[in-house]
Design a binder for these strands. Structure first.
Lengths: 178, 178
DNA sequence: CCCTATCTATTCACACAGTGAATAGATCTG
DNA sequence: CAGATCTATTCACTGTGTGAATAGATAGGG
């Protein structure tokens, strides 16, 4: 539950209510997808149920009620634990490109799968160019630079995989036909 | 709904019931996470509700009832549509490594975040070595080869990103402190 | 002055995705 | 013939996320 941990991280800097948490998130993680309000309150409820977070006040200032939450000692422990845990990459390799190629081979033939892969490669190359160009802007904030770095590196990884896959589509097709 | 499309793909080869679909999936996607039975039946129900799939028979041969499903014309259309749709990569860049680094910087300081990143790097290097070694086995089935290729390419991408990030942790920390 | 638009803050109903255990008939094996 | 195993499905539950609805407060414009 990454969103939960992100909220805990934000709360570690001081108590806040849901609305502000959403805005703090979108502010501090500008490259990430904006958090929906519903998501924030649902996550807070889960965190509360787990004892990681506690409502400390209900204020009514300039508007509707706001419930202010604070991180608990347990929550802090959970948070540092999460930060210190090394993410184990790829227990099972979830490869959406391979999934689609395999399904394409199930449904039709090698030529078709090849075409789809090639179109996907073109799209990736295009995205790659966009991110590379974006990075030339010297005023780009650091978050965006790192986001672009990440995108470029992984687009390149996908491209490498697609090259490798294109060379083996025929063999894959045979493996599937049997 | 990738699982739904995979099921449609399997059904495009001929009608089947849930139990066999699960086994066909695990067979044809050996690198993927095995599908839980519950997931299969739930997905079939969703596909049915959407008109992509239809129960065509209830057999009772050598055991309990089995409901056989077949793909519909609509389902076939949906399937080829999905296959032909190019996946748009990274509308929003979801970068779990960056998320954790940012949260680490919110909670503590640059040195701490650096340590976490370095440990993550070590773990990635280790995984990289494992997959590289696995690939030396000449009898490795093609699915596994492609899975290893994918894993290696993306582990490398992560490693590249981590190098880049390590050089900028200080700057990131400052951006966050403000 | 009041009407509407906007901002603040939360809630609700809903959908999808996935897990683990339960159920239950049939067959095999000692 | 008792228990294990295989076949096939269902159930209750959790987590995650979306979009719309609700509702109070305030600011600006005709």
């Amino acid at each position: 539950m990454s969103t939960g941990h992100v909220l805990l991280g934000l709360l570690s800097r001081g108590q806040q209510h849901g609305y502000d948490l959403k805005r703090a998130h979108d502010d501090r993680f500008p490259a990430a997808k904006p958090m929906a309000y519903g998501q924030v309150y649902a996550s807070l409820e889960r965190l509360h149920r787990q004892g990681f977070v506690e409502p400390v006040a209900v204020q009514r200032v300039d508007g509707p009620d706001r419930t202010v939450y604070a991180i608990t000692a347990t929550g802090r422990a959970e948070l540092t634990d999460w930060i210190e845990t090394v993410e184990t990459p790829f227990v099972h390799v979830a490869n959406p490109l391979a999934t689609k190629v395999t399904v394409a081979l199930l449904v039709t033939d090698t030529a078709y799968a090849t075409t789809c892969l090639e179109r996907q490669r073109a799209s990736h190359l295009d995205a790659m160019r966009r991110y590379t160009r974006a990075k030339t802007d010297p005023s780009l904030p650091i978050h965006e630079v790192l986001a672009a770095d990440y995108a470029i590196a992984h687009l390149d990884a996908d491209l490498q995989w697609m090259e490798s896959a294109l060379q083996r589509v025929a063999a894959l097709g045979e493996a599937i036909a049997t």
